[in-house]
Write a protein that binds this DNA or RNA. Structure first.
Lengths: 194, 194, 194, 194
DNA sequence: GATGAATGAGCGTTCATTCAT
DNA sequence: AATGAATGAACGCTCATTCAT
């Protein structure tokens, strides 16, 4: 019973994600979600109090997916430098491969996030903590003591986040190659990491 | 008389800017703008052909203000290094002081911007060209030849843009000091400029 | 349940028909239809995709009713002359008895009809083809070969259509008796049929 | 002074007619009329109480123009038969050459014509009286006494009006030649006139 | 638990009309 | 007499949400 329940719940989330990525936030309607999911419109409201809650669940899921995806790739390597580089590349890759997803995860305004439950924010922060951890591994390997790993990881994040949002908003000059742009930013971020 | 006219026009622009940052693009409506401005719905259409044109006017105004502000500060210095640093600081400063402008200038969806008039885009690009110019001054001073000044300027922009959008979306950890965050990013951007 | 559904659908169609003849196409609005029907505005859109589809459904209904009515009466007679006469009388009768149908069936602007589905047009043409058929029966009976039955049927239709539209627009002089007017036109149409 | 006044008034009427014929009744707005006329929006209201009155004036003008045009052509001939034929051809010609004009003259619903001044209707009827007159000439020439000339003229009018409205609504089958259609109807109307 | 018909506020936009100048 | 800025009701349509079944 509870399995069936959560099946429908997951279907709705899946459909919402697909529609979001495919057609964008603005043309995402509860009716379209219901139709595509194959359930009745009212059924969605059995699992999600309202549209906001549904979106928040999706955001939550997004953070989890992104974290697992990046963690998995990063853990295929031992060397902190390589791990950091892989992190950066995977992070940017996730962003530009899931534009609408990334958008609701990071660009929604605080006012509109007000109802977003505080405890879910914790999950969102794990990805950033991953950078901190890698930086500390790096410091340890180099025999340095790093006190501001949080600051440093936010600094790296700023670059990566900047690249993604510039690309998502299609603001990169056509004369600049997208991959070169990404690699340049990652290169600088890694080089000046500590 | 003409003063009154442009008063209403400017009132509408001001209201729109405020509403934008407060409630976001998606819940910005012509009605809300009219109500908050204190004029009739139809009155907006006397000054702006449609919602797109209104938004575009706001964007245009934003780019002009930002460019003049930054250019003015940058030109108070001679040394390319200092000019680059000032540019970065002023750019970030503009972003976090004018969230409403910054949001519509750089975060608006591509599909909305498709209709943005080409000649206004030219104005929008001037700020970025300013970085390129400073980088070339810097290269000249150091006797280096720089071929990818455009790529390098976009790379710097990515960092600055990243900082601003993280701050605007209130995603910075409370334990990290905002100014330290900004200065760290600027420092790295300037140091790894060429 | 399904009865209730189609009740509302039919109510909407009925209201639309009444409003159309009362206030004309130009002042027909979805809101007025909803109010008069006693349902919410959005409800109309549950049954009709948009205003055009609603109107087209009404047109379709009209053509069907007219065709069945006329065919039924015509088929009560064998003699081509009588069949033609009956056709004419029934056609005019339908027009003046169902002004709301007739107006949208035949007076709607071409630009509106462009979107009228092709397959519905076929149904619309059946009534006219009925004249052609009767004319050919008539020719056969008289041993004549008729090559322009289409032209001739349109010529008859012009007279009948003219009578109806003059009456619907109330342009007939009060000194002229309506029935005498109708009978005179029908008499001439039949007499000069071939 | 009064000359100047009536100049503007006439300009407005001219513009309205042009816009009506060019873009149709539905896209005819007071503002467009003012712009095209080159006067202020408010100025129109100095000469026409409201849009209805303006349209009615235009209809009035239309009836007058049509009457003069047809009368002029008809009077170039002596023979009643020829005069009748010319009348028919000119009438149809006026209708299909001025579709939107013809439409507001003859297809506006009685309810929407309610405010149309009764005395203006008299002018509208003169064209029909012209048919009556020709029919009486014809009767006199043939030495017949005709008592129902009004009825007969309405019968002819029905055919002509039918042809025009079928053509204006684009309801003629593509396989039927438009001129042949017109000529056939006129031929029958003339032949069975008395 | 599941349905989907029904609601009604909201959207961007148009336009006849008014009225202070 | 002439202006045109301002109004606000109305348009077709969408959509999150409710609720009787």
């Amino acid at each position: 019973m509870s399995l069936v329940q959560s099946d429908i719940r997951q279907s709705i989330l899946d459909t919402t994600r697909v529609l979001l990525v495919k057609f964008g936030y603005n043309s995402l309607s509860m009716r379209k979600i219901a139709n595509k999911t194959g359930c009745a419109l009212g059924t969605i409201y059995l699992y999600f109090e309202n549209k906001d809650v549904l979106i928040h669940s999706l955001i939550d899921e997004g953070f989890e997916k992104m974290y697992q995806l990046i963690l998995n790739k990063v853990n295929q390597y031992q060397e902190p430098e390589k791990r950091l580089e892989i992190f950066c590349r995977q992070y940017v890759n996730f962003g530009i491969s899931n534009p609408e997803y990334y958008e609701i995860m990071y660009l929604l305004h605080p006012e509109r996030m007000n109802r977003y439950p505080k405890d879910k924010f914790r999950r969102a922060r794990r990805t950033l903590e991953l950078i901190s951890n890698i930086l500390e591994e790096l410091a340890e390997k180099r025999g340095i003591i790093i006190k501001d790993s949080k600051l440093q990881s936010y600094s790296i994040w700023a670059s990566l986040h900047g690249v993604i949002t510039i690309l998502l908003a299609r603001r990169l000059d056509k004369k600049v190659d997208q991959n070169e742009f990404i690699e340049t930013v990652i290169h600088k971020a890694v080089r000046s990491a500590i």
